[in-house]
Amino acid sequence: MDAMLFWVLATIAVTASLLVIAQRNPMYSVLLLIVSFAALSGLYVLLQAPFVAVIQIIIYAGAIMVLFLFVVMLLNIPTEEPTLERRWATGAGPRRFGAVLSAVLAAELYWAISSIQKTDLPAGVPETTVKDIGVRLFSEYSFAFELTSVLILVAMVGSIIIARKEPPRDHA
């Protein structure tokens, strides 16, 4: 049962991610990525990490992707236009080179992982409660936690300033 769920969710995640990068319409890309995130959330539940699964949906699928969706809708982004004149960066040659590099990366990772001996996941591990995570988060990792709050504040202020329209110039 677990095995079948793993293969189903893994297939959904990989297919959705492939379609994200293959789709021309950016709206469909965003929605397919949400599907991929939902599949990953299911995988986290299988890995006995329900808290991570739920915050994956809340943060990634529920907040970040809504942000992407708003930007795609408001900018009314057209489906991707054909390549511009600068052939040296966007022509078929460099893009094929990029694809080859990614395939090389995949091959290297495959080789690295298959040289690990087959390790089974220990059975009977209880699922991680929110309490465990909370206790560790606020004791050992409290400094990092406070730093992320500063980070989020900086990101909020920064993105508002970057994205706002130019304020009208003062007339001298």
């Binding site: 949906i57 809340i58 907040a63």
Partner: peptide
């Protein structure tokens, strides 16, 4: 948290 997550969806 599940309720919160699904409401966000």
């Amino acid at each position: 948290l599940v309720i919160f997550a699904v409401t966000s969806m």
